[in-house]
């Protein structure tokens, strides 16, 4: 497949006073045409900095990147023409009317006024914004504004779309809607999509490939399924009526599945193992033969949070305790 994004040793440092913080460190990333990739990581991991470099908003300190075949430093306008971008803020100015911003945006990509109008009307229709077309952006609801952002990003039907934390601030209903739009864009246009998120379910639902970023580095890069299988198997949680049963059950599980991580605390046994759902039946049969009967059995699929925890030793949900890169970025930029 053709290369859409290629970075070599991409690095970005921010300086605040005498302190240098490396937001992105030696990033080598290859994204092929048509891929749907999520950059996943906690706040301050370097996701947005990476996206800002790829969209020409920020110059790399060292290293290089080509996007849609164009260098992000020496050929910025060609990159800009080739991409669509949905940032964290609102794309349309609040003092403007929704339709005007869409049409002007289309014209800025070289569409004729007529083309831009037609395209804007189609997008507003499909995003359920037709009635709001002539409204000022500031009078739209949060969900409507976010849908307008999507329309702005799609006005020129870009072959490559970047989304920076697309669903931040959206209620669950609108978040689901947004995900449908992204998937739809993908299926209809075969567009390449790169998004950043710290929502696990979002990365899981959308991306075929997840690049886990932490402290400016890529710590894992694979499909959601492979990441989970490799880094955080299924979890089988059992409870027993007596501590004796529990410890015997734990021993038998370890013996039968040497690869499994077995932990046991008084009456509970936790078994973490790849393909765990497939071994439950055999395990219970073994317990029945040994005369042990669990009181409860629960099988949980791993989440990307488990993956992140296993990769970094920290949970994605925990706030970072060290200085956030985002804050430094604001000071330094």
């Amino acid at each position: 497949m053709d290369t859409m994004i290629e970075t070599r040793g991409l690095t970005r440092e921010f300086h605040t006073g005498k302190k240098t913080v490396t937001a992105v460190k030696d990033l080598d990333l290859h994204i092929a045409q048509g891929e749907m990739v999520a950059l996943l990581g906690p706040n301050g991991a370097g996701k947005s900095t990476t996206l800002r470099m790829l969209t020409t908003l920020l110059a790399p300190t060292t290293g290089s990147a080509t996007v849609a075949g164009h260098d992000v430093v020496t050929d910025q306008r060609a990159v800009r023409r080739a991409i669509g971008y949905i940032g964290q803020g609102n794309s349309a100015a609040h003092a403007q009317r929704a339709i005007d911003e869409l049409v002007v945006s289309g014209q800025s990509y070289g569409l004729s006024r007529t083309q831009a109008r037609t395209r804007a009307a189609e997008l507003m229709e499909s995003l359920g914004l037709s009635e709001q077309a002539k409204q000022k952006v500031m009078t739209l609801s949060g969900g409507q504004r976010r849908r307008l952002d999507i329309a702005m990003g799609l006005i020129h039907a870009p072959g490559l779309l970047f989304l920076d934390e697309p669903s931040t601030g959206l209620d669950p209903q609108n978040r689901a809607n947004l995900q449908e739009h992204i998937l739809d864009l993908r299926h209809r246009h075969g567009a390449t999509v790169v998004l950043t998120t710290h929502y696990l379910d979002e990365a899981d639902a959308l991306a075929e490939r997840i690049v886990v970023v932490d402290n400016g580095r890529v710590v894992a890069d694979d499909t959601p399924a492979a990441l989970k299988a490799d880094h955080a198997g299924d979890r089988i949680a059992l409870t027993f009526s007596s501590p004796g049963d529990a410890s015997r059950a734990a021993e038998r599980a370890s013996a039968a599945h040497p690869a499994a991580q077995v932990t046991h605390t008084s009456r509970a046994v936790d078994i973490q193992v790849a393909g765990g759902s497939g071994i439950v039946a055999g395990l219970l049969g073994d317990y029945a033969q040994a005369g042990i009967t669990p009181s409860t059995v629960e099988v949980a699929r791993p989440t990307l949070d488990d993956v992140f925890l296993s990769l970094t030793g920290r949970s994605l949900r925990e706030g970072r305790t060290d200085t956030s890169i985002d804050t430094l970025e604001e000071v330094a930029a």
Partner: peptide, 14 residues
């Protein structure tokens, strides 16, 4: 709202 983005990949930036 309906969730369909238009088919037209026609506009190419110039």
């Amino acid at each position: 709202h309906p969730t369909r983005t238009p088919d037209a990949p026609a506009p190419v930036s110039r």
